[in-house]
Structures are given as C-alpha cells and as structure tokens.
Nucleic acid binder design. Structure first.
Lengths: 263, 263
DNA sequence: TATCTAGTTTCATTATTTGGAACTACTACA
DNA sequence: TGTAGTAGTTCCAAATAATGAAACTAGATA
C-alpha cells in the first residue's frame, strides 16, 4: 500500500476520522441523515455508522429520532467558549475594535486563518449594535477576501504555498483571482504595500481594505478589515482610513505581545 | 474483566478518550502544560502524549512551543458556530429574548442542560448592550442556579435522578442546597409551582426567578431566567415578572415546536 | 558535574477498529 | 397484497491501531 494516499484531512487514526465526520455534519447547515453523510464520506457504511454513534454518545452530535437526523451537539458550544476565550484574538482585541469602530462608520472584521480558510472571530457593524456568536465562527474563502489575502501574504513561505494550494479559485465575480499564480503575485504585492484590498472579488459591490496583525517578531496572528460598498465609498476613500486600520492592528499586536499566561 | 468499571466520561474507545482530554484542556482556563493534564488524567504518559499530539494535529488544540502549553484550538470555534446555530435554542429564541429584555430591565439568561450542568446559550444584560460569545458557552452548576433547578425539575425520572447524582453539592452560600434529598424535594416543589427561584444559593446577593421551556408534549428543552440583586429587588418583586417570563418561555417553546427542518 | 524534572520515543503486546456481507425495517409502487 | 427498493443496523474474522512500561533526551537546578 502506498504511503502517500491519505488525505491530510483524514489522517490521525480513529480520532482524525471522527473529527472529519464531525466536520462533515457541521458543514451541512441543517440536520443531516445518515445517508447524506455516507454519500460524501470516504468511509464504509459500518465504520461511519459507528463513528456517528460514538460522537452522538459523546454529545458532540445530537441525534433526532423522528427524522433520524444528526446535528452538531451542544458539547461543542461549551468547548468553543473556552476556545474563543483562550485561542482567539477576539477577547484581547475587543477594546481596540471598539475604538476603531467608533472612529470609522463601517463594518469591521477580525479574522484568523484556519487551514487556509478565513475564520471570522469578531465583527462590528456600523448599523446594528453587536451581533456576535452568530457571526464569530463563520468561515470564508482565503483567496478572495481582504483579510484572507492579508494573512496569507504574511505567512512564511512553506505555509503560504500550502495555503495557496488549498484554495478553490471559484470565480465569484469578474474580479476574482482564479489561479495560484495570480494569487501569488497579488500576495507579493500586498507584502510590499502593507495592506490588502478586496476589489469586489468575493461579492459584487463589496470592497474592503485589510491589514495583517503582526507581532514584533513578524509572526502573523490575524487580520483586520474595514468593509464598505461601492455605492457608498471607493477604494480611494478606504485609503483614507488606512492609518486608523494600521494603528488598530498595531494596538492588537501590542496587546497580544504583552500577554503570555499571566500567572 | 468487569463490565461496570468504565466511567461514562471515558467510555467510547479512543475517540472518547481524545474528547475527554479536550475537555480537560478546556476546563483549565489558561494554557496548560503536559504535566498539568497528566496529573488529572487517568491515562498513562505515552497515551496522553499521543492523544495531545493527535488533537493538536487536528487543530482541536493549539500548542505554544515557547512555554510548551496547550490551549483549545480555533477549529472548535468554527465547529461551534454551526453547533450554536443548529442545536441551541438561541437563534430561535433571540426575538423573544429581545422582547422580554425590553419589558424587563434585568439580566436575562437562556440556558440548556448539558450532562447535568447548566450551559448558558444566550444572555441579555440590562446595562451593557449585548455581550455574546464571551457569555454563551459558559457553564454553571445545576443544583444551585434557577435555570439549573428549573430544568432538572422537568426531566423525566431517570434523567432527573441521573442529574441529581452528578451534582457537586458544594456549599457556595448559606442557602445552597447541599444534599441530593434537599434537591429532590426542591425539584418536586418546583414542579408543583411551575417556577424555580435562586435564593442566593450560588452567590450572596444574587437572586433569580426561572421557568422551564416546555414543548406541548411536555418535553423540557431549556430554561429562562430573570436575575437581579437583593439590593435592588426582592423575590416578591420578581414574582411580578412571572407572567412575562412564562409568556416568553411559551413563545420560545412555540417557536421550537413549529420548527422541524424546513426543507 | 551530578541530580532532578518534564517531555519524547521505542517496541512487543493487546485491544479496537475495520468493512464486506448478511440482515432488518420501511417505503413505494404495481 | 406482493415485490423491489432504500435506509439503517448488526456480525465477525482479519487487519490495524492503541497501549504503556521502560528507556531515553533535554533542560533546569543545585
């Protein structure tokens, strides 16, 4: 048997498989039947069946007997609370986002990178007050969002190539970058410029300016963006906000720096 | 080998063990060293070591090389988003909580039961605007909180006895119920009364009135509470709010009822 | 340098996972 | 009512992965 044919997603023995199944259930946005999962799972029926049983047993999934459907379980909500507090930038960045939000009347996103994808961990909306859990945890593509490109640009070479490789390059709009080469060039440009733009690459009419959050050592720990619509503002207008965006990114980096497990 | 000597926490093979380890890491509220986990883990060094490696590999934990500490990983945040939206009452209850919140100038909690413990899934605070993810996912004890008792009271007999058995009965205040019998009696009383009170049982000066959320069939799916301080209001005052509390609980139950996977 | 502690690797043994296939329970259709 | 199909569950021998005692390594401490 070849040694190269295990997908990275699926490695790591039984636990890896179980977590992969968990992901598959979570990926559908509604409760799923056994068969739905079976369809896009690499595992044989019996195996999948037992993985689902185990996960349900453990409270990671919930099973609805009428309808026979599985959904992510509340044990995850409990675990996530602690993950969000400890491993995300959000709690640390909160005051700085509040400050930026008061300076800028636009939507602000705070994101981190999770396996080449953008994970939004906090958000401020100009209009509506705050709307959290429902937004934090959302994922988006890396290659066609401002925060995604800003973060990828500042990964080290290996990690960056890896991330470039894992994008889908789906053409969302006419402006979407649809090849690894185009993306690679864009990332180089972002590095020299210091900020990334989303030029309606993900959604027509939506543009943004994004900055990476970099620790003094240079390590990239996340990104921050200011989003607006073309009806409302232009990229030039967004450039006006760059100093505030960068200042906020720096403040967050500073807060993250001076923070290693207070005894 | 006996069949009875596996703790329920730890059953379910390797996956169960891995998830147990995940819980242990999440339970500490700061990043933990290998040894910290080893201390309160039932697993031998080598086993624990590999479980941690697997989990880290999978992004369920993050490992910080300086300091050699583990913390819950951001993959959890992503999973939780979908769990919160699908398996918690919160998204469904949101408009009803908003309504109650506007009627009542007090703190409101929405909770569900997770293995005998209270899991808060949403919150409205009279003073501060909204403060979500940081609150949702929090856990609390069942035997000494209003929502905890309200939920336990309406479990079926088996599940209720099970929950009663799993409480710690730590004496937080002079009013804390500290024995299964006392709790059992209180739960019977709650069932006859329809609401539960927290009479400074968890924290001195903090009282609340809580109602279960019951589907028409009688199944308990969560609880709702209005909290205040003794300086501010008395239990009698809280009784004035009972109709609104119950109405809100009913509304949420109604919303939950008329909601089975819309195709 | 010696001693201790924390973390990592090894490897033969053991136990669990695996998955093809058989089975059951429903549903749909003739 | 019978027959075919679909969805979910159980079985069991073979294959594989997990186990854990012990040896080892790297840092820290004295």
């Amino acid at each position: 048997m070849g040694a190269m044919d295990k997908s990275p997603q699926t490695a790591d023995g039984t636990v890896g498989k179980a977590l992969h199944v968990l992901d598959m259930v979570a990926a559908h946005m509604r409760p799923v039947r056994f068969n739905d999962i079976l369809t896009d799972s690499p595992y044989p029926k019996a195996t999948l069946y037992r993985l689902l049983q185990t996960l349900t047993n453990q409270g990671m999934l919930s099973f609805d007997p009428d309808g026979g459907t599985y959904a992510p379980g509340i044990r995850l909500v409990r675990l996530a609370h602690s993950a969000w507090r400890q491993s995300s930038l959000a709690p640390l960045a909160r005051p700085h986002l509040d400050e930026l939000s008061s300076q800028v009347q636009e939507t602000i996103h705070l994101a981190q990178l999770d396996r080449g994808q953008v994970l939004y961990v906090d958000k401020r909306n100009a209009a509506t007050p705050v709307e959290m859990f429902s937004q934090a945890g959302k994922v988006g593509p890396g290659y066609c969002t401002g925060v995604g490109k800003a973060m990828m640009a500042y990964l080290n070479d290996d990690a960056r190539e890896d991330a470039i490789r894992h994008q889908s390059y789906f053409r969302h709009t006419d402006h979407t970058l649809t090849s690894p080469d185009a993306l690679r060039a864009e990332l180089a440009h972002i590095r020299s410029r210091g900020v990334a733009y989303d030029r309606e690459e993900h959604e027509v009419g939506i543009i943004c300016i994004a900055a990476p959050i970099l620790l003094p050592g240079g390590r990239m720990i996340g990104a921050l963006s200011i989003t607006t619509s073309t009806q409302h503002k232009s990229l030039r207008d967004l450039d006006q906000l760059e100093p505030m965006l960068q200042a906020c990114a720096n403040n967050i980096a500073g807060a993250a720096e001076n923070w290693q497990f207070p005894s």
